[in-house]
Nucleic acid binder design. Sequence first.
DNA 1: AACACTATCAACCGCTCATCA
DNA 2: GTGATGAGCGGTTGATAGTGT
Length: 300
Amino acid sequence: MGRSPCCEKAHTNKGAWTKEEDQRLIDYIRVHGEGCWRSLPKAAGLLRCGKSCRLRWINYLRPDLKRGNFTEEEDELIIKLHSLLGNKWSLIAGRLPGRTDNEIKNYWNTHIKRKLIGRGIDPQTHRPINEIAAATATASHLDFRKSSPPSIPVAEISLINQRNKEYACNDFSTATLNPKTESVEDVNCTSSGTTTEEGSPRLQQRQKPIQQQELFESELNLELSVGLGPFQAESTRVSSANTAESKLQKVPYQLFGTVQSAMVAQAVCLCCHLGYERKELCRNCQKSNGFFRYYKTSDS
DNA sequence: AACACTATCAACCGCTCATCA
DNA sequence: GTGATGAGCGGTTGATAGTGT
């Protein structure tokens, strides 16, 4: 089915946003709230397409964004969530208050992937690289390296394997996988966008993380005692009964060994759970950020 | 100082999903 | 049931800052 372009491309700016454009967007949303992205640019006097405005707001201008480096706790949480959800960056971001899907995605690709490889963990499967190497022994090295960017020289694998043995006893992902029930293909699912498997990659992305999570639910005392973030909670997209997100909501989560039933309706942001900001409520738990949000149910 | 290479991340693109008429 | 539309997601690209030679 064809569809009209989201904007008049000939009359829109592209590339980096100027301070003036940022200010226009902020001012508009401050007054009118989020939403109606298609009509927003015109209404706000911006020569941008609605998608661009939305991205700029969500990824950069939103007042509750937490800028700065990721903490070690955030790293580990991202790794845990990725092992469950695959490249569902928006779902992962929903559990990391103040972080955006784009930010997490970039951080994953630039830092965490390398970190996991250094630990001897395959970043896509979250399984030890030596297991994967053994399972793919018949495949060419080139294929293996292609599937696990950034590639590591084959010569380094033995060193990594050794490191992995040391790490494996502490690593949640390696310690909880059941070799009897999971083949490499079972786990090698999550979603590399570069997959060349047959069928719709996107469909597989949606289905496989759930299968994987079912394995985890039974075997892993997973711990994410985090509810939906303030933004994620409003999403109409999480309503589907069978999404990984909704399944996550049903499970009582524990965080780093601390038992907490996570009532989604009483969700508390991760940073408060972790005690990052003990003196006062974190920004994500405060509603008075000077902006009001656009609720379809009440505003439209 | 100049150039090449690498890393980072904001922004874009193409796609799917949800909703509505 | 079907098509149009808006919104959102995930993968990719490109500009630029940082680092090495």
